[in-house]
Design a protein around this nucleic acid. Structure first.
Length: 491
RNA sequence: CGGGAUGUAGCGUAGCCCGGUUAUCGCGCCUGGUUUGGGACCAGGAGGUCGCAAGUUCGAAUCUUGCCAUCCCGACCA
């Protein structure tokens, strides 16, 4: 992939904004930073969403929906949580407009001021926990395992398409449990669900880990995460799962009666995955010709381009192509037949490569005589003739192969770019010259972590789960350390 | 909120320094025709408050001042 596309997130942004997802940021100044996702990009999101949703249900969760607006007072109940989100909230102060008495246009009616301002949710912990208070009385009400698919708004100072937009789509799970063990188990389970989805469906390898105190979610006791590496060597947090302890239960007074008829605060988790994952997908798999989508979530897995000269040959190709479409659909393949006469084949080839369709089938009279089709795979750009006999089975195999190949390629790249550093000089040099993740000893203090960040812009992405324990000295302070943690520059 | 840059058609741009007919070019769009195995070609056509406002001038996209907006870099973050 060329330097122009790998050097900075903005380069990718411009590219998929204009060409690929056919979406981007809204161009009205007042809603700048909010995403517009056009149908093709949204179809991709829907496939991701449906797969995850299926897994949530398999693990016993149900979907619900809570309000967009949160009374200001709700947000002030959990101290760390407020501090984390207060600086980036959109606030509703009025509920009515009126004609401007001084002339044209419309103004906010000053008489329509809300008694209590409403916050547009940056996340829903507060409104959900104030609801859970009414829903939980007994241990028999637990565990409460709820997820919601929603939009949230965070008024960031700077936006980056898909990675950090003002409004974004996500899923947030909020669970309540009778015991600490159960809640921790839930947080870990959902981390596994994310990791499995991202690796198996998005073909993006991730490292499961736990965040340091400094990088932890506002209000959490422990934040688990999955970290992915982009093609430019920078890290991207692809999903998080939080063990919230009893922080929210205490803040919102959510107690239950246990079997001994004693009151206890519930234990909580929350976990989320966002449209940022679309950004990850793009930055991990794309090449200079455009997107490369993993077959399991591609809106179309196969596109068929007919090649013909004149009406008569079109009719002949059409008939055979439609047969093949039916065959492919019969084995569950998402297929598009593009017989649009306005664009020539060459144009279509380039267009579907840009959109990342995993497999392209081209067929004309020449192929039909030989009972073959031309099959091109997007990931390696290889083209082969394939017999029309048994085509659908072979395409199924090909799609599986592409999925695996994409994952293996990304995995190999990531593993090549995880390096150990044992001295500060080595650490800085690796960071500047190679990028990627750097496994290094750290003395476990927030001060050290912040100094490293100040001097290098690298942060501790995570302490990997089941991390190997080994004696060592902190890269910065030389103080004793028992394990290496992963540092990287991140989006 | 600090530092830098930029605003000309749906998109990308030339012109600005050194003011002068009808504002340049490409893509895209519309009509007709020929085409169709890697982003077609020919002919014709539509599309502009040159970011906004004031000023200088016979004359402003071009010079001056103010304002607005956007982008990039930093702090903040899924």
């Amino acid at each position: 992939m060329s330097k122009e596309l790998t050097s900075r997130a903005e380069d990718y942004s411009q590219w998929y904004n204009d060409l690929v997802i056919k979406g981007g940021l809204a161009d009205h100044s007042a809603v700048k930073g909010c995403m517009v996702i056009k149908p093709y990009g949204f179809a991709l999101w829907e496939n991701m969403r449906d797969q995850l949703d299926k897994r949530f249900k398999e693990t016993g969760h149900v979907n619900a929906y809570f309000p967009l607006f949160i009374p200001k007072s709700f947000l002030s109940k959990e101290a760390a949580h407020v501090e984390g989100f207060a600086k980036e909230c959109a606030v509703v102060t009025h509920y009515r407009l009126m004609n401007d008495p001084n002339g044209k246009g419309i103004i906010v009616d000053p008489d329509a001021k809300l008694e209590e301002e409403l916050i547009v949710r940056p996340t829903s912990e507060t409104i959900i926990w104030s609801t859970y208070k009414d829903w939980i009385q007994s241990y028999r009400d637990l565990p409460l395992l709820i997820n919601q698919w929603a939009n949230v708004v965070r008024w960031e100072m700077r936006t980056r398409l898909f990675l950090r937009t003002t409004e974004f789509l996500w899923q947030e799970g909020h669970t309540a449990h009778a015991t600490k063990e159960e809640a921790v188990e839930e947080a870990e389970r959902m981390l596994d669900v994310y990791a499995e989805f991202v690796e198996e469906y998005m073909a993006v390898p991730v490292i499961k880990g736990v965040k340091t105190a400094n990088e932890r979610f506002a209000g959490a006791v422990d934040t688990y995460c999955i970290e992915a590496m982009m093609q430019d060597g920078k890290a991207l947090q692809a999903g998080t799962s939080h063990f919230l302890g009893q922080n929210f239960a205490k803040a919102f007074d959510v107690q239950f009666l246990n079997k001994e008829n004693k009151k206890e605060y519930v234990w909580a988790t929350s976990w989320g995955m966002t449209t940022r994952l679309i950004g990850a997908l793009i930055m991990v798999h794309s090449d200079d010709q455009g997107l490369i989508l993993p077959p399991k979530i591609a809106p179309f897995q196969v596109v068929i381009v007919p090649i013909y000269k004149g009406e008569e040959s079109k009719a002949q190709v059409d008939e055979k192509a439609k047969e093949i479409v039916a065959q492919l659909k019969a084995v569950g393949i998402r297929v598009k037949y593009d017989d649009n006469d306005n664009n020539r084949p060459g144009w279509k080839f380039a267009e579907y490569e840009l959109k990342g369709v995993p497999v392209r089938i081209a067929m004309g009279l020449r192929d039909m005589e030989n009972k073959v089709v031309e099959v091109a795979r997007r990931d390696t750009k290889e083209k082969n003739s394939m017999s029309m006999d048994g085509l659908s089975d072979n395409i199924v195999k090909l799609l599986a192969d592409i999925q695996l190949n994409m994952y293996n390629k990304a995995l190999a790249f990531r593993n090549e770019n995880i390096r150990n550093a044992d001295t500060w000089d080595e650490f800085v040099k690796l960071l500047d010259e190679k990028g990627g993740f750097i496994a290094a000893h750290w003395d476990g203090t927030t001060e050290t972590e912040e100094k490293v960040k100040e001097q290098t812009k690298a942060t501790i992405r995570c302490i990997p789960l089941n991390n190997k324990q080994e004696e060592g000295k902190c890269i910065l302070t030389g103080n004793p350390s028992t394990q290496r943690v992963l540092f990287a520059r991140a989006y």
